[in-house]
């Protein structure tokens, strides 16, 4: 069960997925709040965020992980990811331009499965990492 996009034999270590670039808006955060149920006011209430000492509202970490996940499944195909892990390195801010970077770091076979390991990052236009993580996909 999985979308066929990438074949194991065609992938090489060092290959990079197409980059997804997105300028973060407050509407993204409101939409994510509604879809996920995370109504922490730091992510949608500018008044509350500033009262708490933040310059503005800031993005949900899980919005960033979701966006990077969309870039990941666009590359390896929906249904093929067996592991996806990130560390939340920095907050994201409205108007920042976020870009995905997904690089093939290894190919291996385990228990009859053909696996591709990937390094995944989401960073802003200044090159500051927001998410740093790893993923594995099972390909045919």
């Amino acid at each position: 069960m999985g979308e066929k996009k990438l074949s194991f034999d065609d992938v090489k270590v060092g290959d990079e997925a197409p980059v997804i670039t997105h300028t973060l808006t407050r509407t993204d955060l409101v939409k994510y709040a509604g879809a996920s149920g995370d109504f922490n006011p730091m992510h949608h209430d500018e008044v509350a965020a500033q009262a708490a000492g933040q310059p503005s509202v800031f993005g949900h970490g899980m919005f960033s992980m979701g966006l990077l996940g969309s870039a990941l499944t666009d590359y390896v195909g929906v249904g093929n990811v067996t592991r996806y892990q990130v560390r939340f390195a920095r907050q994201t801010w409205p108007d920042e331009v976020l870009s995905s970077r997904i690089v093939v770091t290894g190919k291996r076979e385990k228990n009859g499965k053909r696996l591709v390991d990937l390094a995944v990052t989401l960073s802003n236009a200044e090159g500051e990492d927001k998410l740093v993580g790893e993923a594995t996909a099972a390909l045919t």
Binding site: E3, I20, H22, D28, K31, Y32, G34, A35, S36, F63, G66, L67, G69, S70, T73, D74, V78
Partner: peptide, 8 residues
């Protein structure tokens, strides 16, 4: 899926 900006 829309909220995480998937176009699939």
């Amino acid at each position: 899926a829309d909220a995480v900006l998937s176009t699939s």
